[in-house]
Nucleic acid binder design. Structure first.
Lengths: 157, 157
DNA sequence: AATGAAATGGTGTGTAA
DNA sequence: TTACACACCATTTCATT
């Protein structure tokens, strides 16, 4: 995990289809050296997968919301986690500090789809309380966070 | 945007490096037909870009936090938005309903890096109040949200 | 809008340094 | 760990349906 690896991750985060030749030109390495580094970055788990950034609006998911969840006292937390992980509308769900147990980021076609989602959580007895916050617009969105060009941590992974 | 397009998006979301041949086999189309569909999906903006899913822990970003922001009365909202969009630690930032103005998802190397971030927001006079929630663990994470295999909206984009 | 064939160019492997 | 060369395969274009 040196500065060249981070540059490669940055280039691929911008365009995962960049050719080994182009990446090599950007980091002063031959295509095969770049390939070997990408192989190692993938094997070591730094790169989890090559994926897409899509426009969910066009796909019919007009609503983005954050649902704060307080788990019921008698809820099976492991069951809740696997339910939430396999729910198609859930983009993210994190166990968090503070007054709430979990924060789930969900995408729905319409506002009306949120209530059935909450109802299901309640029916399964996961939910004690919840609070839903709707995202009106997005000011920033980045799939990969990297250190600013100069500084940053080294020798990990 | 038919069911085949959605299947292609789903396959690419899982593995953006899947070959046209393999995708074609999965959706019963020739490689060149798949290629043309991907070109159209990209041109129409459904696919915004090909990117990576990375492990930020290994990259040295051990802390994931949600920062709730109430903008100061005299804050220049446009300025705030471009500041937050260009800040390297900010993974997402949404304008939200409810008691707060914005919700920012940030990644930091350590907990100690959060305070300087808040200080900078304050120094720039964007911040009235804020509340920071730390993510302890992640139960779900998906880059792309698609309708469940059967149903879903059609004829968009 | 899809197919199939042909050309291009990128990927991946082997060998050597 | 990288470079270089070569074999292979994927991508892309084009003519056709």
């Amino acid at each position: 995990m040196d500065i060249t690896d981070r540059k490669i991750v940055g280039i691929l985060a911008d365009d995962a289809r960049a050719s080994l030749t182009d990446i090599g030109a950007a980091v002063d390495l031959s295509p095969s050296a770049v390939n070997e580094r990408i192989r190692r970055l993938t094997a070591s788990g730094v790169i989890r997968r090559f994926t897409l950034d899509v426009d969910h609006r066009i796909l019919g998911f007009d609503v983005l919301a954050f649902v704060w969840i307080a788990l019921a006292n008698d809820a099976d937390e492991g069951e809740f986690r696997s339910f939430i992980a396999s729910h198609p509308a859930v983009a993210e769900c994190h166990h968090v500090t503070g007054a709430w147990s979990y924060c789930a980021k969900v995408r729905m076609p319409t506002l009306g789809d949120i209530e059935p989602f909450l109802s299901e959580l309640k029916a399964r007895r996961y939910l004690a309380r919840s609070e839903t916050v709707i995202a009106l617009s997005t000011a920033a969105e980045r799939s990969v966070t990297l250190p600013a060009p100069d500084g940053g941590k080294r020798d990990r992974g």
